[in-house]
Design a protein around this nucleic acid. Structure first.
Lengths: 206, 206
DNA sequence: TGTACATCAGTGAACGCGCGTTCACTGATGTAC
DNA sequence: TGTACATCAGTGAACGCGCGTTCACTGATGTAC
């Protein structure tokens, strides 16, 4: 063989890694095979030595991005006291930094709506990774029964994803910053209840 | 003129109306000019008698969709007692019906992430309509100061949009229904707080 | 009122371009002897 | 160990196709007289 087995795996991984950034930046259909290969330092002709189709790369790139997010959150949780874990995750998510750099951010926000329209195969790969991510989040809720923890995780993730989508639409002005703040408070149960006269909960210390 | 002035306005409106459905279904780049014109009962050559560019139609179609959503919510609010207005809006939003019919649903969820990547002109048109929608939602919160009402509206809308995105990724199984339920509760402040030992707030009656 | 003309929404062929994919070829390296 | 051969990741030209856009033309209707 011209190159060692390792070399091919490394090249493959590099294409996926670079593509996962560019696809999050430009959308699942926003960048072509030739440009993606160029980003990895190659020419487009070699693409099909690594992937059956463009769609196969999109799936791999998405899975890579989701695994990195989940892993980053797990590490963040490990180095944070249990009671503050969700807050640490939510607050690292709803930042101007994340809003302004979709290429290195959450793949759900960058690609979610688009992927929901892809082939059943692509959507299912996406759904499986989403499920893993929710499980990981649910694990960060100490002393909450598994089912309730998952529900809280789903609610928090919904708010996080929605707030980031809205903030990106709003650009980078005051409205956008307000959205990030409102999303953080809501995801952490700090927001005033929509019932107008409800008092704010004062959580017991733990 | 071959056709009356009215006729042209009607045709224009019909193209926009049909396109707004198809674009929400297929994505901002998911359907071509020829198919969009076909949907309106025309051939593609006539397109540029109505629009400067494809992008101009995308903007009009998006604006149309946002106006319809805002208007529908306003009407729903009018026929609902003040204390139940947000609940009525949220619960009509997070349904399997809405999840499974993006073409007639919320344009933010269907197109948000994609539009955030478009030209500045398109994104700003989007942001202006988002702002209007948030204002309308904030008005549905009786006896809450304007600023707090807007914050609550932003939080609720974030949760609604995020939950619908996640539900669409999840497809139509159990996970998907769980997401809708968790999103509804969270958007209405009914969710348990992420702080594990906090008591649920009992809102004063009003 | 009736007639000749001007208008322009709509048609359908054609354009140039970019895309995903294919293919014959290359040449550095692994492998067999 | 040294040499001849086989492999296959990567190259770059070419393919077919669909897209947004342009354009010459049509013909029903509004308008001027």
């Amino acid at each position: 063989m011209r190159y060692s087995r390792e070399h091919k795996l490394e090249t493959h991984a590099r294409i996926v890694r670079k593509a996962s950034v560019r696809i999050r930046e430009k959308g699942a259909h926003g960048i072509g095979v030739a440009d993606l290969m160029k980003d990895a330092g190659l020419t487009h002709g070699g693409f099909y030595a690594h992937f059956d189709s463009r769609e196969a790369l999109v799936i791999e790139a998405f899975v890579y991005a989701m695994d990195r997010s989940t892993e980053r959150w797990r590490k963040l949780a490990e180095t944070t006291p249990p009671a503050k874990r969700m807050a640490a995750i939510v607050e690292s998510y709803l930042t101007p930094l994340h809003r302004d750099d979709p290429g290195h951010g959450c793949a759900i926000t960058a690609l979610g709506a688009e992927i929901a329209r892809e082939s059943s195969k692509t959507r299912k790969a996406f759904a499986a990774k989403l499920d893993q991510m929710v499980d990981m989040l649910a694990e960060q809720m100490p002393r909450v029964p598994r089912k309730a923890a998952r529900k809280q995780a789903l609610a928090a993730l919904s708010t996080m994803v929605g707030a980031l989508v809205l903030a990106r639409i709003a650009g980078s002005g005051e409205l956008s910053d307000d959205i990030l703040a409102a999303g953080s408070d809501a995801a952490l149960g700090r927001a005033a209840s929509p019932k107008p006269t409800a008092k704010k909960t004062r959580p017991r210390s733990n």
